[in-house]
């Protein structure tokens, strides 16, 4: 396979994750096991051990440990093994916001309904507190995008959840607005949230247009076909978005609506 980095075998990856002397090897091995969606029986226990390697944020030497833990958290989401849920829930309260972000995304991929009360609690203070800018970095107090997206993917459409998400649709950052609209569209199917995303496809910043493309694809919002075709962005991203339109909410055979999307994809190759 092209583009997968240094070729190592699954056995080598497991071995490199098991040793703890060289963290850069652990870092790569954790990524590799997630990328390959390893089904080896030792993969999940080793990744959980790597996740527990995390350290309190402010210990100077702890940065590398947490880099390994973050990759382990991401890999556990890709491998999608339910055994990872309880440890990822603990990580959702970690002091390292990068780890909370990785855990939120993975809990979303795992469709972990148990994460909903924790995610809503961390976001409940709204854009002014949870969504406030940090003084020490360009990041926000909470990894809002990842947490909002996770709530949308997990799919618990209760009134309290919607009430927590809605204020983020007027956050100052367009990427946060996009994530909030995506979640609300997934949870409610209401057109108003799709309209917001379609607006963002015309945002002057490429980064925002890309995010809106990915969000419409993740929801599978069919009426977005033509606006996606017209968006000023790379064909590679439009193809991923259109793949989302076809795959999200679909059976095993293409109907005529699907064929229209597939033909649009052909034209972008």
């Amino acid at each position: 396979m092209a583009g997968d980095g240094a070729p190592i075998s699954e056995a080598e990856a497991l071995e490199q994750l098991r040793q703890t002397d060289d963290q850069s090897r652990q870092y790569y091995a954790a990524w590799w096991l997630g990328r390959m969606r390893s089904r080896h029986p030792e993969a999940v226990p080793l990744l959980l051990a790597a996740l527990r390697q995390r350290q309190p944020r402010d210990v100077g030497a702890g940065v590398e440990h947490n880099a390994v833990a973050r990759n382990a958290a991401r890999a556990l989401g890709k491998i999608a093994d339910g055994r990872a849920v309880s440890e990822l829930l603990v990580v959702l309260d970690d002091a390292d916001d990068g780890l909370r972000e990785a855990a939120a995304r993975s809990l979303g991929e795992l469709r972990a309904t148990a994460a909903v009360p924790l995610l809503t609690r961390r976001l409940a203070s709204g854009p002014e507190v949870a969504g406030a800018h940090r003084s020490d970095s360009p990041r926000l107090q909470e990894p809002c995008e990842a947490m909002l997206e996770a709530l949308g993917t997990i799919g618990v459409a209760e009134a309290e959840v919607l009430a927590v998400i809605k204020p983020f649709t007027s956050h100052g950052r367009p990427l946060v607005r996009s994530a909030a609209c995506r979640a609300l569209l997934q949870l409610t199917g209401e057109t108003a949230w799709a309209d917001e995303l379609l607006q963002l496809l015309q945002h002057p910043q490429l980064q925002v247009r890309r995010a809106a493309l990915m969000d419409l694809g993740a929801v599978g919002w069919r009426p977005a076909l033509v606006p996606i075709q017209r968006t000023l962005a790379e064909n590679s991203l439009k193809l991923i978005a259109l793949r989302g339109l076809v795959e999200n909410g679909n059976g095993d055979e293409a109907d005529s609506d699907d064929e229209a999307v597939l033909m649009a994809m052909d034209a972008l190759l």
Binding site: V246, E247, N250, D252, E253, A254, D258, L262
Partner: peptide
């Protein structure tokens, strides 16, 4: 990948 299977089917 579902979308690949669907395109091959078409």
């Amino acid at each position: 990948t579902l979308v690949v299977r669907l395109r091959a089917g078409v």
